[in-house]
Design a protein around this nucleic acid. Structure first.
Length: 359
DNA sequence: TATTCGTGGGG
DNA sequence: TCCCCAAGAAT
C-alpha cells in the first residue's frame, strides 16, 4: 500500500519527462511552452472523437484554412460545414460543431469558456472533450480519460472489473493522478503513451516509462487489459439505390433527414435498408419512372453496427426532366454535395456501369 | 444503462 | 478475409 502510493506520486513526473522527449508533433498542438489556441484545440478534439489522427489531419487543416476562428465558423452555412465534414463520419459531430460555434460566438463573444463545467454544457462536448479542452487550452486540472488513458490505467492498476464498474475505477485513478502543474501536457502525454507504447495488441513495455509501476506488466499479460464487454453481432441489411443521371451527367439526389444515420447528408434515392429486403419489390422505391438496369454486383459497405448491401439500379433521364418531390439535380461533379463515403462508393460503381452479361 | 452513430487502416 | 478499433456523445 505504501509502495503503491509512492509509485503513484512519481507517475505524473515520469510521464511528463517522457513526453518532453517523445511527444508527437501534431498540427493542432502548440509548440512546447507556447499557448494553445482554444479554437484549434476544440476543433481537433471534436474531429478526433472515435477517429484516427491520420484521418483527421487533412480535415483539420481544411477547416482551419476555411474558418480560421470560431466566429467565422459560426457564420458559415450549415450545408457548407456538412460538406466540409463529408467523409469523416459521425455526422452529428458536424451539426454539434456548428451549433457550438454559434453559441460561443453569440453568447460568449467568440471566447470559449475556460472551465470544464461550462465547456461540458456546450453541444458536442461530453466528459472527455470538456476535460481535454479545459486542460489543454486553459491549463485547468481536469481528469482527461479517453480510450488511450483507459488502456494505460487499466494496465497500470490491472483493473479486472468489466465496464461500467471498471470505467469508474479508471476514472477515479485518473483524477487521483492528474497533476496541478501542466495538466494539459500530462493529458496529451498519457494519450501519446497509449497511442505509441501502450498499444492495444502488443504493447512495447520494454521501452515504457511506467513499466516499473505497471501491475499488468508485472503479471506478464498487459494485452489482457482493459477488460471489455462482449460485442453484439453485426446484422446484414440490404436495400436498393437508384442512380438516375441526365445526359449532362447531373445526378438525382436528396438530403437525408437531419438526425439519425448519415443525418443531413446527401444520398442517392432508394429503399429503406432492412434485414428482410425483397429484391423483387425494389422497383416500387424508384424515384422516377424509367428503364433501369441493375449492376452485376451490389455495393457493400460496413457500418459500426450493421453491414450493408445495396443493389444499384441505373436509369437515364431526359435533359429537362423535373426532379420529383424531395429530390433535386446535383451537378455531375457533385462538388457542392455533402456526400458520405457510402454514397461516393455508390456513384463510382454506377458510373462504371458493370451490368454483367445477363441484361 | 444500452444503443446508435462512419470510416479507414492494421493485424 | 474479417475483425478490431480510434482523442466519445447523445439519447
Amino acid at each position: 500500500m505504501c509502495d503503491a502510493a509512492i509509485a503513484d506520486a512519481a507517475i505524473p513526473d515520469a510521464v511528463l519527462a517522457w513526453y518532453d522527449r517523445h511527444r508527437r508533433v501534431l498540427p493542432w498542438r502548440a509548440p512546447p511552452g507556447a499557448a494553445a489556441d482554444p479554437y484549434a484545440v476544440w476543433l481537433s478534439e471534436i474531429m478526433l472523437q472515435q477517429t484516427t489522427v491520420a484521418a483527421v489531419k487533412s480535415y483539420f487543416s481544411a477547416f482551419l484554412a476555411r474558418w480560421p476562428n470560431v466566429d467565422a465558423l459560426a457564420r458559415a452555412p450549415a450545408e457548407e460545414v456538412m460538406r466540409q465534414w463529408a467523409g469523416l463520419g459521425y455526422y452529428s459531430r458536424a451539426r454539434n460543431l456548428h451549433a457550438c460555434a454559434k453559441t460561443v460566438s453569440a453568447k460568449f463573444g467568440g471566447q470559449f469558456p475556460d472551465e470544464e463545467a461550462a465547456l461540458r454544457a456546450l453541444p458536442g462536448l461530453g466528459p472527455y472533450t470538456a476535460a481535454a479542452v479545459a486542460a489543454i487550452a486553459f491549463c485547468r486540472k481536469a481528469a482527461v480519460v479517453d480510450g488511450n488513458v483507459e488502456r494505460v490505467l487499466s494496465r497500470l492498476y490491472a483493473i479486472e472489473a468489466p465496464p461500467p464498474a471498471g470505467k469508474r475505477l479508471i476514472y477515479a485513478r485518473a483524477e487521483a493522478l492528474t497533476p496541478a502543474e501542466r495538466p494539459g501536457d500530462y493529458a496529451q502525454a498519457m494519450m501519446d503513451l497509449g497511442a505509441t507504447i501502450c498499444t492495444p495488441k502488443s504493447p512495447a513495455c520494454a521501452i515504457c516509462p511506467l513499466n516499473g509501476a505497471c501491475a499488468a506488466f508485472r503479471i506478464g499479460d498487459p494485452a489482457r487489459f482493459p477488460v471489455k464487454a462482449a460485442k453484439p453481432e453485426r446484422p446484414l441489411r440490404r436495400g436498393a439505390a437508384f442512380y438516375v443521371a441526365r445526359p449532362d451527367g447531373a445526378v438525382l439526389v436528396r438530403t437525408r433527414p437531419p438526425k439519425g444515420l448519415l443525418g443531413g447528408m446527401t444520398e442517392i434515392p432508394g429503399s429503406p435498408w432492412t434485414e428482410d429486403f425483397d429484391e423483387a419489390g425494389a422497383p416500387r422505391h424508384a424515384p422516377v419512372e424509367a428503364r433501369y438496369r441493375r449492376l452485376a454486383r451490389p455495393v457493400e459497405h460496413s457500418f459500426t453496427h450493421f453491414a450493408l448491401q445495396l443493389s444499384v439500379y441505373v436509369g437515364e433521364a431526359g435533359a429537362n426532366m423535373p426532379a420529383p418531390d424531395g429530390c433535386r439535380w446535383a451537378a455531375a461533379d457533385l462538388e457542392n454535395e455533402a456526400l458520405p463515403t457510402l454514397m461516393r462508393k455508390l456513384v463510382s460503381a454506377a458510373r462504371r456501369r458493370e451490368f454483367g452479361g445477363d441484361l
